[in-house]
Design a protein around this nucleic acid. Sequence first.
DNA 1: CAGCATCCGCTTTGATACTG
DNA 2: CAGTATCAAAGCGGATGCTG
Lengths: 236, 236
Amino acid sequence: MRRYGQYCAMAKALDVVGDRWTLLIVRELLSRGGCRYTDLHDGLPGIASNLLADRLRDLEQAGVIWREAAPPPIATTLYRLTPRGIALRPVLAALGHWGGPLLAEAPDEDEFRSQWLILPIEELLRDRCPDGPPAAIEVRADDQPPIAIETRDGHVRARPGGLTAADLVLSGPHRVIMGVLAGRLDLTRAANAGLTVAGDRAVLARLQPAASPADARVTHEETVDKPRTAAGTDRA
Amino acid sequence: MRRYGQYCAMAKALDVVGDRWTLLIVRELLSRGGCRYTDLHDGLPGIASNLLADRLRDLEQAGVIWREAAPPPIATTLYRLTPRGIALRPVLAALGHWGGPLLAEAPDEDEFRSQWLILPIEELLRDRCPDGPPAAIEVRADDQPPIAIETRDGHVRARPGGLTAADLVLSGPHRVIMGVLAGRLDLTRAANAGLTVAGDRAVLARLQPAASPADARVTHEETVDKPRTAAGTDRA
DNA sequence: CAGCATCCGCTTTGATACTG
DNA sequence: CAGTATCAAAGCGGATGCTG
């Protein structure tokens, strides 16, 4: 963990979470809750085992995660975020917003895990009918384990796992599902691209992308950083 | 620029800005606007010159910054953020919020540059009297170049540079000034720690920390990530 | 001097193999 | 399952040199 040695809040944050893989470990724990070592290793394709062990040590030392010695029936350790770790969620959310447009040009060989849908779902989707009845949607991306979306009282929650009584089941290639979630793909186009919708389509209309992906289209011509030539701008 | 190869917006963002120093380069450009190579090198103590050149190339290629060939009178290139680069501000803001509490235990040997006050000022301070007259404050930290704060119509802006007619001048050690901005230090304590206030103290009352630094005091006992044992949580 | 490029010693990373 | 051990390759930090 190399430090910057700067008296700056952003640099201090990067001292803790700026190393390679570190924020992605937090992403996994935010998405899935408590994880075993093996779960993390699977959710972080490409990470070396020793690096994962190193990072977990560093994060524990920094007070971001916490090692739960699970009771005898499970007989394994679970890694969980501390409140301080959960507080990193806005950082991941901001990164996700900024990175969203980059997915459009992602190569097909990219790895994918269905739990990577969870944070985008919770950040991007809003319930348009807070007064409506609770609704449950199951998302099946590729042949990955399903994700459950539940909306009630205006809140949208997502978690790994299937549903025994889903109002709606969405299936399809992960790119299509992510495209719909991010508002880059309308449902007609998505259906053409392989999205299958089974069940009560009305609940789908309730959940619509809230955050404008407008910055995806931003051009160099707009909003160019204007030189601030007001008097007194020069350094003393 | 090593990539993660994951179809995930956060991972894609980190592919671009996850390398060491990259986000701090963006911080400098957000704080100061257009910068020369040398300005950046000075604002990033510890960076190797070749690394700075590499990163600038990568960021330009990624569409985050933009090389302005300044007109003959200046005879130098200025690096500026593109709109896509400016859109990284929420990422830096979230990191700053999370990292703020870490400043309390920062070592005294840490480097400091007065422009590192600019983003915290704009993120943390709110004008309590939006209807009041425009006010101008000059901040002098250590013996660094001054920073100007201007508030008008409810907005708080900060920029490098002095003021010819400041309503108020704050001087003192950088740790004290940052402590006041972050709300970690009240004015009495700050005065004892070396803060000097010259001018109309009333304008100081207008600007108060808006964001609660409550998470600085969060304890492990509170809000522990609850296991979600609802039916259907297990993977299929 | 501004804006790099080159070289060098060191650390970190990634891939694989191995162990309790 | 949950790591540790090993090692080649890449990245980093520091110094120095080159070019306009």
